[in-house]
């Protein structure tokens, strides 16, 4: 059923981007437990800042991260690859709390085109958010 007809809200306005991220410590060959904790925080040109469980790895370890888009809002083009992986070295690590750390991965092995497209997708999300804020406030 189309949600446009006579409804004051549209279901698509409640959809948010969500990712499922899993990881494996390539150095110790141990999968990252409590993967639901993993969060991508900041994107660099050839690296990423992630929140991970504290036991995910130590400085210098190689980490394989698998990113899968679970849900993408309608304003984001849907012809993106649904999942991809990157491997990087932990170059910085800082404890966030007793269970989690913030780490910076410097990519060691990654598909540049895939990564660039992911970074652009996130920039589009930000643009779309900025547009709504302006529409409401200006």
């Amino acid at each position: 059923m189309s949600d446009k007809i006579n409804s004051w809200i549209r279901a698509k306005d409640f959809i948010e981007t969500s990712f499922r991220i899993t990881g494996e410590n390539v150095t110790t060959k141990v999968p990252v437990k409590s993967a639901e904790v993993i969060e991508i925080v900041e994107l660099h040109d050839s690296g990423v800042v992630l929140k991970v469980p504290k036991i995910a790895g130590a400085l210098g370890h190689l980490l394989l991260i698998h990113i899968m888009r679970k849900q993408v809002p309608a304003h984001i083009t849907d012809d993106l690859e649904r999942e991809f992986s990157v491997t990087g070295k932990i170059v910085k690590a800082e404890a966030l709390d007793a269970q989690t750390s913030l780490i910076e991965l410097q990519f060691y092995q990654f598909n540049e085109i895939q990564w660039k497209s992911f970074v652009e997708e996130c920039a589009k999300r930000q643009d779309s958010v900025d547009k709504i804020v302006r529409q409401i406030q200006e």
Partner: peptide, 10 residues
């Protein structure tokens, strides 16, 4: 990043 959350915050 849902439109609804964004518009409510704005």
């Amino acid at each position: 990043d849902s439109n609804s959350l964004v518009s409510s915050a704005a």
